[in-house]
């Protein structure tokens, strides 16, 4: 099979890719920030003395961890508005769903990190008069963060790739823009290859950095 690659028309549309890439980064970073906040709250609820809070948090986590992200996106955009009787903006639905999705996973990563810290640390902090929240932020969290960093980065890398699904809600992310370019140029091979390369170009440095970070942390123990 002989195929003549032709990137000319792709370069002409590079501004579309560039725009899409920015949208992808925006949704990734945005959903990571909201996801961390949701994750902290959910983790706190899971570890709380109030049982019902824990059950509630658990229910949320199971819903979002055990259904596909694509299904969640469709549900929030098409089903949820019928339930509440208000139209939901597609950008809002996309950001909300992405954040809730990643937050459920982050919560589990945070919880795992915190409960892996020896109980004696909490006791030693309490013994010098620290309040539970001081003990958490000064003593437990710094140690837990170090331990959970690799899984956190891993989940965030997955999140970056997962944002491609918001194209089904017509959010103009990288995947959506690749389809647009393809529609204009009839060059699917080039369009989708450039898209894949752009994902790679962002994530390879991130995973390299993560490996480096992990190595540095292991030596500082």
């Amino acid at each position: 099979m002989t195929y003549t690659w032709d990137f000319h028309s792709i370069w002409q549309n590079f501004d579309l890719f560039w725009f899409g890439l920015q949208v992808t980064v925006l949704y990734t970073v945005g959903s990571i920030v909201f996801g961390v906040l949701i994750g902290i709250a959910t983790c706190a609820a899971r570890l709380s003395r109030w049982r019902f809070l824990g059950y509630f948090a658990r229910l949320y986590q199971e819903l979002f961890r055990c259904t596909p992200l694509l299904v969640q996106l469709l549900w929030f955009y098409y089903a949820f508005p019928l339930l509440v009787g208000v139209n939901v903006d597609n950008h809002f639905a996309a950001m909300l769903t992405l954040s809730l999705y990643v937050g459920a996973f982050y919560a589990e990563i945070f919880r795992g990190g915190i409960i892996s810290i020896d109980r004696g640390q909490q006791e030693a902090a309490a013994a010098i008069g620290m309040s539970p929240s001081q003990a958490m932020w000064r003593i437990i969290a710094p140690q837990a963060i170090k331990r959970m960093l690799p899984s956190f980065i891993n989940q965030s890398v997955i999140q970056f790739k997962n944002t491609s699904l918001i194209s089904v809600l017509s959010v103009a992310d990288l995947a959506y823009m690749a389809a647009v370019v393809n529609g204009q140029t009839y060059r699917p091979l080039e369009s989708y290859t450039v898209m894949a390369l752009l994902y790679l170009a962002i994530l390879v440095p991130v995973t390299q950095l993560a490996d480096l970070l992990e190595k540095r942390m292991r030596t500082s123990d």
């Binding site: 004696g120 006791e123 010098i128």
Partner: peptide, 29 residues
């Protein structure tokens, strides 16, 4: 809180804070 500020405790397994230097451990309280 007040009680523990005034009644110190030392444990069998030390429970030093591993992410802090010796001096930081001592100054933390």
């Amino acid at each position: 809180g007040t009680l523990r500020r005034n009644v110190g405790m030392v444990f069998q397994h030390f429970n030093l804070f591993p992410h802090m230097t010796v001096l930081q451990n001592v100054c933390e309280g």
